[in-house]
Every structure is written in structure tokens, then in C-alpha cells.
Write a protein that binds this DNA or RNA. Sequence first.
DNA 1: TCAAAAAGTTAGCCGCTCCTAAATTTGGTG
DNA 2: CACCAAATTTAGGAGCGGCTAACTTTTTGA
Lengths: 271, 271
Amino acid sequence: MNARDALSPDAGSTDASPPDVSPPALTEPVEDYLKAIYELESRFGVAATSDVASALDVAPASVTGMVRRLATQGYLDHVPYRGVQLTPRGRQAALRTIRRHRILESYLTRVLGYPWDRVHDEAERLEHAASDDLIERMAAALGHPTADPHGAPIPTVDGIVDEQPHRTLAELPVGETARMLRVSDKNPSLLRYLAEIALQPGAEVTMVSRAPFDGPLTLRIGKNEPVVGPNLAAQVLVEAMPSTGPRPADASGSHTAAAAAKPKSRKSTAR
Amino acid sequence: MNARDALSPDAGSTDASPPDVSPPALTEPVEDYLKAIYELESRFGVAATSDVASALDVAPASVTGMVRRLATQGYLDHVPYRGVQLTPRGRQAALRTIRRHRILESYLTRVLGYPWDRVHDEAERLEHAASDDLIERMAAALGHPTADPHGAPIPTVDGIVDEQPHRTLAELPVGETARMLRVSDKNPSLLRYLAEIALQPGAEVTMVSRAPFDGPLTLRIGKNEPVVGPNLAAQVLVEAMPSTGPRPADASGSHTAAAAAKPKSRKSTAR
DNA sequence: TCAAAAAGTTAGCCGCTCCTAAATTTGGTG
DNA sequence: CACCAAATTTAGGAGCGGCTAACTTTTTGA
């Protein structure tokens, strides 16, 4: 599906804008909209009004209104009844907020001892209040982490992020082993359960068996063999591992943010 | 002037409020108003509309409007044309914000290496966003500090704070030595200068000489003898020290007898 | 003492972000 | 192909927090 190009004829245009030194201080709701739209867009290609509405827990009509304003301000393109897509400017703003969020989550977990199921809400509020200086101090204190506690990659200050598509645990064939990479930070009870069965980023997990008709999956994590529903497994992203022998190939595919390799198109896209 | 009792007949009442478990989630502007009013009230007895306006950098008419709303909600008492005073409820809310602010300042300084002239603005924004949990984690990480980096006392979770009236450095007689206690956190360039001459909380400072007609003061701090204006000295709060050597035991009633008698808490400082 | 200045309030308005209710458009499907 | 359901937008409005301009009250000082 080419949903990506659905909205703007010149979708691939690069922005040759000069270094925009002082972004115009977005309000908290605006940052939330841009972040939500970024996330929907990277999942579905375009963000639908009703999806944005439910992500932000507001009425669809409110989204339409906000979207119109953000479009006139150049943060996104809106084709009525079709959806929205961020402009480079909007994407840059979204990635700045996401960087803050993920650094905050990392700091709260690693320095202040927050459990990983409670950092989301806290970061959600702090991300709008913390200065760039504070965020960078936190990042430095952590040794500039490249992923948050849930395995989500942290965009660089320049808005570069390496959001690769990953397989889910649900797709792991029986008998194979994978490394747990990432899970959404938004579901506390899921996170608490995952911590309980030690299914956290970096963990090795083996698919022991799979009941038919989308039935429960038996895993092996360390010495335990938890049984989980396919629904849960579909939310856990994993990376194939050299399964007890062959397949040594793609070792470099970590979930860390790429170093700024490209000389030219410093596009902040997360494809 | 007995401005303290000007507004309400029971002005001096302590609040023996029962444990108010869930405060109704104040907005950011409301927290700012209550905090500003608290500070003005503890300096002048009542908070004047125009003082609140300039503290918050809004128009006086805006203050009148907000004050009316806060009065109907029970946070303060307003006597038109006379000023406002916090109710116990309003004071509790103000002290909660102040506790957050001061713990944040302490954390930023001691853990994240912020210079003391830059913590105010950062704390000003974070104090509205941080959860109680986060604040208490920071406090615990610091060993539950009782004063912030500028020497301001940190209220307890129950809203108890020890705001004693202190003498200013400007009042220190020639030849006497005092311990620097506190300075406002709101003036970055002043703070930078004080750091330069090592006049920070805990430092010992001696009044070497005093030029006539409100002229410059010569201090001794360590090995240096900085010369400062009376205006600066009036902003620095100090505590008399059992002066080593010179100045016999005249400690009690020397000059400017600041009333230390009252068992009450917050009281005014001169302007 | 009393008029002018200062301080405070009222009136009326604006922008932001949200809402509900009523159109309108889109995408199936019988 | 026409009609329905779902998605979306428009219309109209509310509350908050801010503003300016005009008016009222208090304070000041000649």
C-alpha cells in the first residue's frame, strides 16, 4: 500500500530549510497532537481523525479543529476526509518531543528507580516542561542511551531515529529463539506482567509450542515456560537470533539510533 | 502597620485541616498565583493586586479576575481594593508548590550539576508537571534536604515550613562576622556574582568597613575582600555568629531588634 | 482640605482547546 | 446503483486566562 504518498503530490520533497534555531514554543496540546500523529503516521501511513481522537482521548471534532490550525501553521498537510501527514517541520517537532519522552523514561528508570510500567505517565507530563538543557544533562548522565527502557529508539537531537520494522513474538516459529527488543510503554498492566515473566528488552525467548487456531503460546525464558495469549505476543517485538547454530548474518541490526552517517538528506523521517 | 489582620477576623488561625488526600488538581496558572500570593503575603501581610500582577507579569485586571475565581473556590479571601490573603486551603496548596520547587532546585543543583543561577526557571516549569512520587523520590535521593541551594527552607509534605525572619547582610555591624543563610533564587546575575565572591549559604562573611551615606560595604569572605553595594547586601540574609575573637558578648540586643519572640510561623521581612 | 495620582475593578473582547449536535462525505453492499 | 453506516467536518458554544479601556476607590501631597 502506498498510503504514504496519499496526501501530497510532492510527498518526497526535502526541506532545505536553514537551521531553525528557535522553534516557536509549542503548547502542550500541540506537542501531544504532533506526537500522536507521528506515531499513527509511522504505523499506517496517514493519521485518521478518529485515531488521533482516541489516542488523545478527545472528540473527533476537536481533532478537526486542531488539525486545521496546525495545517495553516505548516506542521502538517490535511486533506479533508482523507487524513493528515506531518510536514518535515511537524515531524521535527514530533521527534523532539519523542526524544524528550524517551530520555525521561530512561532517566526515571535508571536513576530514580521507577518501575518500567510507571514511567510513561510521568514522562508524558515532564516532556512538555523540561528544557533542552535538562534533557541533555539527563542523557549525558546516562551515557547517551540509544533506547528507552521499553526498547524504543531515542531520536537524536537532529531528529534522526532508526525505527525499523520488527517481527512480533507472535510470528516466531516454533523451536526458534529470538531476542526481545521492544514493547509499547502505554500499557502498565501488560508491562507488569512482562516483568514478571522476565520478558524484557535483551531477554532471550524461545517459542516452545503453539496451540492451534490462534491458541496460547508456550515460551521459554530462562528456566521458565510461561504460556501467553497470541494477543500479548503480538505486542512484543523481537529480533531473530542465530538460533542455536546457523544464521550468523545480521548482527548489526540493533535497535540503537544510527549515527549521522548520511552527508546529505538529514531528513528526520522514521520510515 | 498590622496588615496581617487587615482582611479576615481570624487571620492568625493555624490550619488544623484533616488530611486532604486528593487536592483537586490545580492548573498551572492557579498554582502560580497561589505561590506568588503566598510569598507576597509572608512579606507584606497581604498581597496587593499590582504586586501579584508584576510578580506574575500579567495585567492587574487579570489578577482581579483570577482572584475572584480563587476566592469563590475557597483558596483565598479578597476584600476589594484592600488585597488578598490565602485561606488555610490556599496556603496548603501554595506550600505544596513551594516544596516541589525547592526540592527540584536542590536536585538539579546537586545531582545534575546545574549552576545555582539557572535552577529557578527550570524548577518553575517542572514544579507543575512532576508527580508527588517523583518529588519524593528526588527528596529521598538527596537525603531529604531541609533547604534549597539558595538557603530557602523546604516545607514538609504536611506544609510546615520554618520561615524565620533573618537579618540582612546590610545590617551587619562593622567588625562582626555572620554566616550567609539565604538569597532569592530569582536574580541570575546577582547569583552569578555572589558565586564569584563565594558568598553562598554557609559562607562566613565579615563586615570590614562601611562607607558613609549608604555607600559601598567592604566584606571579608575567606581571603578576599569584595566591595559591594548596600543594595546587594540588603538581599543577602545572614545569621549572627558567635563571633570569634573581637566583639564581646553583645549578641542579644545590639541593633534592629528583629522580633524573635513570636511562636508563630511566617512573618514579614522589611522592604 | 481637596484635587490629582495611584491602585483596583468592571466591561468587553480575544485566542486556545475542548464540547455536543447537526450536516456532509466516503465506502461498502444489497 | 442507490442507500446505509461509519467517518469526518461544520456550527455553535463553554471555560480559562489573558488583554485594553474606562470607571471607581484610595492615597497622597500641595
